[in-house]
């Protein structure tokens, strides 16, 4: 007895469900197996071919310089907003700052139709090349007690 059948001592199929002439279901192995296989293959095939058209693009040198400069200029305002939003909570301040940075960077790559990675590499390069001490230390992860 297969283990999908009712358990011994448990409920048994009623006589109604004993085989009868209408239940000549040889098709119930081959046809469903084909359906199952086709479904699985279709799922795999559709998934495999779901790549979006790649967007890489390029940022002009002048735009790149402007990006880095603008990033550096905006940072104090983002930090101040975060500090006011989350007084005394350094991780949340960082997190809010990074949210501002994310939104700003996203608007840039959308506007210039470039891959996000290109913009982020430029920002990283900009951080490393700042004359003043760059803020490259991040507060340790300590999520708020109730985070939404």
């Amino acid at each position: 007895m297969g283990f999908s059948q009712p358990i011994p001592g448990g409920t048994q199929p009623s006589d109604l469900f004993r085989p009868n002439p209408m239940m000549n279901l040889e098709f119930s192995v081959v046809a469903p197996a084909i359906i199952l296989t086709v479904t699985l293959v279709a799922a795999a095939y559709t998934t495999w071919n779901s790549d979006p058209r790649p967007t890489i693009g390029q940022v002009k040198t002048s735009a790149a310089a402007e990006l880095i400069r603008s990033h550096q200029e905006r940072e104090p305002a983002w930090r101040a907003k975060a500090a006011r939003q989350f007084p005394g909570d350094v991780w949340s301040q960082d997190d809010d700052f990074f949210l501002s940075e994310y939104r700003w960077a996203k608007s840039f790559w959308k506007k210039h139709a470039v891959a996000p990675g290109i913009v982020l590499m430029l920002l990283d390069t900009g951080l490393r090349s700042r004359d003043a001490e760059p803020n490259v230390v991040v507060s340790a992860c300590k999520p708020r007690l109730a985070y939404e």
Partner: peptide, 11 residues
Amino acid sequence: RAFERVPVRLS
């Protein structure tokens, strides 16, 4: 009876 068969059910 059909649903009792694994291939039918799984398909």
